[in-house]
Amino acid sequence: MLLAPPHKRPTGARRTLRSYIRINDPWVFVLPYLAGAAFLIVYPVGYGFWIGRDPLNYLQLFGDPTYWAAAVNTLLFLGVGVNATLLLALVLSGFFALRRWWVKALLPVFILPWAVPVVSAYLSIHWMLNSEIGMINTILRGIGVSSPPEWLNSYGWAIVAALVSYIWHWLPFWTLILLAARMAIPNDVYEAADVDGATGIRRLVHITFPLLRGTYLTSTLLAAIWTLSDYNTVHFITGGAPGDTTHVLATLGVDYAFDIGFIELGVSVGLTALPLIIILIVLLVRRLKADDGGLA
């Protein structure tokens, strides 16, 4: 039977079986999730599309250089920010998997950027980057750099500053995810490898990485999707300055919707990311299907 729990039942006890099956149905286990989705996802998402229905708004956006600058910056965040974060997280997950007391002691410290409220942390970084009185340039001058960069005053450095701040905030989270994935690799896989004489780097390349590949790729795709809605980083680090050159779609859209009060235009900015998101979700679904075989 399709709805049977993961074991076969003798066909004889049909009457009691029926009532028994109900409670053990897979349906029952996903019911709470489906309820939440029906109440709070289907309606708002549908309504979101409805708000962004006017084609004129898209025409206006596509004629605006600020929009295109934001689109390019968004791609920078996806291409550079996300990948740099995930690569670093992969390396660091190996570091934190080491069984040394001081490495373990460092871990709770390391998650601080994730735990500190982003508004304050990013505003603090904004002031650190001040070219005259910021801590970064004070340190640089202290070690003999005579004219350190004016971090936030030109597009190039400002977008770099925003990207680095993004990495700072998100690195702990993805490191923990990859660390958990590493921990999920059954020991017997390693033991078998030991028997085959694979140690050190070889073990890393031939066993750990292939097994982490699925999680790594899926995390990258999800990080990309979330980054599309990351408003805080750019809003508080650069605020779009200088001259609205460092916006991303999320800041531009949210500013239009909330700061200016043009909701439809703002939501339209968000919806222009849709082709990108759909590609990412399709890739993600493919990945998940590929994972279905699993390890076990």
Binding site: P44, V45, L222, V267, I277
Partner: peptide
């Protein structure tokens, strides 16, 4: 597919919900 509209843009629809 929940993530099809970036969350920051769902604030207003969610408010309405």
């Amino acid at each position: 597919a929940t993530y099809v509209i970036p969350l920051s843009f769902l604030a207003i629809p969610l408010y309405k919900a």
